[in-house]
Amino acid sequence: MDRIPILKLGGALIVTIQVDMHDRLALALEEDLTAMIARTGARGVLLEISALEIVDSFIGRMLVSIAAVSRVLDAETVVAGMRPAVAITLVELGLELTGIKTALNVERGMALIQARLAEEEDGRGGDRDRHEG
């Protein structure tokens, strides 16, 4: 069974989804990612989904649950590069991914994660988060 690779870059994990997600793949990803966060102590997760063309309610919920699990393990999830059609579908499904940060592309997503990492190195001062919807 194929799996989605998870890359470690500094204090962040990068996941790029290049294939059509099916349910089992999504579940495997959630498992792998959780294990990886625990092992590496990563503080940020970047989910790059610009190649994802089709979403259903299950994949939407999986995004939410990945973010929730990561938060429990003190890593922040940023979803980057969502296509317009996917965004519309998720909103129509009522999945607004509240609590997950979003970014237009990988560059901005990494900037968000790096900002958080830098902040924490500054002695955990001043919670200057960008607002979350």
Partner: peptide, 13 residues
């Protein structure tokens, strides 16, 4: 609200 939510998902405020 839907439009705003969709734009947020794309990473824009």
């Amino acid at each position: 609200l839907k439009t705003v939510a969709a734009a947020r998902l794309m990473g824009a405020d």
